[in-house]
Amino acid sequence: MIVDGDHHAGVRGFARSSTTSGVRNHVFVLPVVVCSTLLSREIAAATGAVSMTHQHGCGHIGDDVEHTERTYAGLAQNPNVAATLVMSLGCETLQGPRVARRIAAAGHRVELVGIQSSGGADAAREQGTAVCRSLVDEVAAEGTPVDLSTLVIGVHLGRRSALVEELAARLRGLGARLLLAGSDPAVSALRDRLEPGQSRDEVEFGATTDRAVAAVEPNESGARSQLALAVSGAVLVIAAPDTGQAPSGLPVVPVVAVGSADGLHRAIRDDFDLDETVDVDDAMRFVLEVCAGRTTASEQRGAEDVMIPRLRRTM
């Protein structure tokens, strides 16, 4: 970490605008439907890109269509993503061209490959791999120092966590913007500490915010809370899952998982990065190393699944 005389702090990152940076420079292979997830993973594995597994994209109804599209677009527009390859089947409800246009309209680099329009799975794999490889080459970059105030750090509190609350306060003190998720009273307590007396409106799903401290809609599911943070632009998530829930990962955003010191979390300690017994200075060092490229436990075990929150039953 670089700290200058004015207490501004910087890390290695990837500037996307004057106010926004990422801590990764991914090419994201985005399957818009479950039918293209296998190909997307194969293409990502062959090219050094990242992808995700999910079960959705077809049979959505009503506002669930927009909600799912927002999920896809939010991940593609995350500052950790330099370019996106949209992989579509062709006949699905969430139409690939529409998703690609939405991402492009937001000023992001995007390409589209369809299975049906390419002439089958083998042809789409070949074409997708070639397109993805050229995107990887096109966006390749070394990180540069970026100001912490250009980073949105996600904080997920499924439980009260002294360590995560202290990390959040320190990161805020260094200028980082914080986006909070999880359940009350943990989220309210942290907001009280960071911004006493401030208003409590929520950031809409998929929207971004310039506020220094903000929160997304409460959700009992840790995985869904973390996804909401990623689609609203968090470039790193520090997560304290509920004591009964396992840690989860995200496709384009590193998750620093902090376990409680006993119970289930102690039993699966290998799947966490930190626990409540870790010294806060050491924990802070770890978080900044992750910003600089260190991989987390969820990335190491390959937990890039996404729990896409369908709003309604499938048609």
Partner: peptide
Amino acid sequence: RGNREFAFARIDPNWCSAGR
């Protein structure tokens, strides 16, 4: 080809979101 897709047909997939 190794296609092994898997998904649950849920009735109320969004029950855990506040008020949803």
